[in-house]
Design a protein around this nucleic acid. Structure first.
Length: 107
DNA sequence: CAACTGACTGCCG
DNA sequence: CCGGCAGCCAGTT
């Protein structure tokens, strides 16, 4: 299984209405310290095709709660709000309310 | 093969 | 709270 698939699988675990950060996804995927690779993997979703629909990429924001997406920040904001996740006027999510820590046992 | 480029992060001032 | 900066690493040029 490729590193990307491992990352996609982890992103798929993020529950509806919750968010996670690039760093946490990397950690849960068994790739501690590789936050940037998570962003890279999500960016690659569009290019190599078909799995875009099954990976909830919009539930991933950066460590401070901001939307890091350089491509479609507006779309990500809309998708998050559609799940009742509050995004403030500066594109930030309150991690104290919506951050999904993940299941400790999956480490 | 050497540089460059990010959907990142933690640390420091 | 904000900007700067060094690690990070797979793809592109």
């Amino acid at each position: 299984m490729s590193l990307y698939q491992q990352i996609y699988d982890t992103v798929r675990r993020i529950p509806y209405g919750r968010v996670s950060s690039y760093g946490r996804v990397a950690l849960l995927a068994g790739l501690p310290g590789h936050a940037r690779m998570v962003g890279y993997a999500l960016h690659a979703l569009g290019s190599h095709g078909d799995d875009v629909g099954e990976v909830p990429w919009w539930r991933v924001v950066n460590a401070t709660g901001y939307i890091s997406n350089a491509y479609q920040p507006e779309l990500q904001r809309a998708l998050l709000e559609a799940e009742d996740i509050v995004v403030d006027h500066r594109e930030r999510v309150d991690l104290r309310r919506f951050l999904w820590e993940g299941d400790e046992s999956m480490l």
